[in-house]
Design a protein around this nucleic acid. Structure first.
Lengths: 135, 135
DNA sequence: TATAACCCTAGAGTGCAGTCTAAGGTCAAT
DNA sequence: ATTGACCTTAGACTGCACTCTAGGGTTATA
């Protein structure tokens, strides 16, 4: 069990951010010490790791909230809804994957065109690098 | 050459967004019609396509601005700086790529655990799905 | 020729995601 | 016992990326 400052340092976010996430339901208010200090578990650490990762790839806190609330159980009723929601998210994720691969390739083209040795550096911009990608 | 409304419809953004991007230097103010209407070229279309794609995968407008300004020329002096900047960006892009793959896998695990047929739907959350990923 | 559907500007307003401030309580070390 | 580093709350403030409003001009169609 760690205090907010420790978790903040570990996750490289501010204490305020962690309280903000709690206030907005991304991390459930858990244990408190005698003095009222928040105490975080290993699960909380993984949870905020997920939040940060998801944020980095362009999910909003709202979307992350929905992702974290997803839970497959034996409840037949909700199972269909979950499947639907998850598959919709997978589609979005696949689009992002494709987009980021495009960007990576164009950055790579740019990097390769640059100082590659003695051959003359060709004139090249991101947009030109992007256009060259025929796939 | 198309007017702002056409480009907005094509790129699925608002006219205001396009004017906003211009004001912030993401698209250079180009040709104007006799009446002062903005006129956009094919290059502008590709440009805003790039902006939108980059935004979707989590780049800020500021970062996108920097990416768009990158240009490899024969100027030896700036070449080193460009290489450095681009390679730093590639590192970030690679991290995002890894992160989005992680998220995709966990969503897939979640989807697979759900309504897979007659086998009992195992209890599964995003965090558990993430933990299962040993790679 | 007038009506709708477009375009312009400057500037105000909005929602998201924090970030900071004030005023105070707790804990470990000198 | 007091100093400093930590923790608490509520609420104000900030920066980003739009989004809207007001007040006006233009262009195509009935």
């Amino acid at each position: 069990m760690m205090k907010i400052g420790e978790l903040a340092a570990l996750a490289k976010v501010s204490r305020d951010t962690l309280r903000f996430y709690e206030k907005h339901g991304l991390i459930t208010p858990g244990l408190r010490s005698e003095a009222g200090y928040r105490l975080y578990s290993e699960t909380d650490v993984r949870r905020i790791g997920f939040i940060i990762g998801a944020k980095e790839v362009g999910f909003t806190l709202n979307e992350i909230h929905q992702l974290l609330e997803l839970e497959v159980t034996k409840d037949e009723k909700s199972c269909h809804d979950i499947k639907h929601f998850v598959d919709a998210k997978i589609t979005i994720v696949n689009q992002r994957l494709a987009e980021i691969k495009r960007i990576k390739k164009s950055l790579q083209t740019l990097s390769d065109a640059c100082c590659g040795g003695d051959e003359p550096a060709t004139h090249c911009t991101i947009l030109e690098a992007l256009s060259e990608q025929t796939n």
